[in-house]
Design a protein around this nucleic acid. Sequence first.
DNA 1: CCAAAAGTGTTTCGTATACACCCATGT
DNA 2: ACATGGGTGTATACGAAACACTTTTGG
Lengths: 244, 244
Amino acid sequence: MTANLNPHISVDCVIFGFDENELKALLINRDPSEDPASSGKLKLPGDLIIRGEVLIHAAERILAELTGLHDIYLKQFGIFDDPGRLDSSDDLKWLQERSGLPVERVITVAYYSLIKIDKRIPTDLSIAYNAQWYPCSSIPAMIFDHNMIAESGLDTLRREMLTEPLCFELLPEKFALNQLQRLYEAILGCSLDNRNFRKKIQRLPYIVPLNERQNGVRHKPALLHVFDNEKYISIKKDNTVFII
Amino acid sequence: MTANLNPHISVDCVIFGFDENELKALLINRDPSEDPASSGKLKLPGDLIIRGEVLIHAAERILAELTGLHDIYLKQFGIFDDPGRLDSSDDLKWLQERSGLPVERVITVAYYSLIKIDKRIPTDLSIAYNAQWYPCSSIPAMIFDHNMIAESGLDTLRREMLTEPLCFELLPEKFALNQLQRLYEAILGCSLDNRNFRKKIQRLPYIVPLNERQNGVRHKPALLHVFDNEKYISIKKDNTVFII
DNA sequence: CCAAAAGTGTTTCGTATACACCCATGT
DNA sequence: ACATGGGTGTATACGAAACACTTTTGG
């Protein structure tokens, strides 16, 4: 917990989830006594890496501690290395205490993470960390340069969504086509023609319809689909790009 | 030159140039007395960062020292952080000497760089650093994990070429359309239909024909074109992706 | 029977693809 | 005059976009 940390490098995670037709990010509040929106204590989940720890493992560790989830999509998207990025914050002190070492300069490696929000995060963990989902359209102020990191992560996600099948990481295993469409609309910030969208998707051989429908909805239940990753990979080889 | 370095973080550059219809990378040989191909002393241009130095400045510094060039396209594409990446190499000793500090673990941040090979690198610099261009299709063995870094840089370039106007960073300011085509063919490793390629390019408003032709060639001289970056940026806003 | 979302086809337009010959220059 | 790469046009096929109504369920 102390001298085992590498005080030069940290990892921060921008954790995205799709909920109620909105893209949200999971932020934590280090000071539960204060109002999260105004306290300035909100931050991205993150930590110094452990000596000898590979960055991706640090990111997985942070995710697992916070959410209890493993096997989550993680993608490194940037490094934030402004030498002054930790200045003018008493959170610097916290880092010093945590590492037990003088903290001169910390560069942070940023990952974005996509989670299926239906795998509910255990409530006790959310409470322990004061974790909460905030709509990406209105992320409150955070400490350090974390707002910049979150923005950059969102930009990257928007861009990479267009060429990689990331959307399925954000949806339940079995999803309705209209759910997929609303996800695209939420992330890209535009609206899409329903008929054309469905035609395009249904042509893709790696999106396979099940013999199963939604239930418990008070309208015509949608046919469920799954994403077949093996099929996707085998097709991708020749025509490198995922287009939806 | 010594205690001023940060012994935890380095920057390595994969420098690409397009020459004689081939994509090449600029490698350096730290031991001029040996045959570069077999000595195992080849490496990517790189260095530890200076204390307090921003990563991109370190990359710019490395490029300027090696090539004498400024204002070069640089893009960070990855971090190489395997704790064992420097093991089993006597180059580790060199790093220790250079920094004057015990080197425990160095993570390296990798940039790729695109240079117009017609801006010839001053010969004295190439000699001082033993720098040499090697075709990307047959890059010799290098120290550390530098082969992996170079491969990864090439992959990234191939991918990003498809959605960003990077090609013009590799061509002379004024270029012929067929040069552009050969560049694409070299990087993508495929051949393109000449007529269709020209049609597609000529539709793009940010590729502007000049009233000027090649000279000194012993065939019909090609009309020269330039890439208008301002125009590109203004158009890009709405339809986010560069497609060729 | 009403509310709510699922699901469905056709036409039009533009871009992608395939393909073979003449042109301008230097030597 | 010839060798070398530059430059051009058309026909076909395919995917993108625009557009409005019917269907199925739960309450």
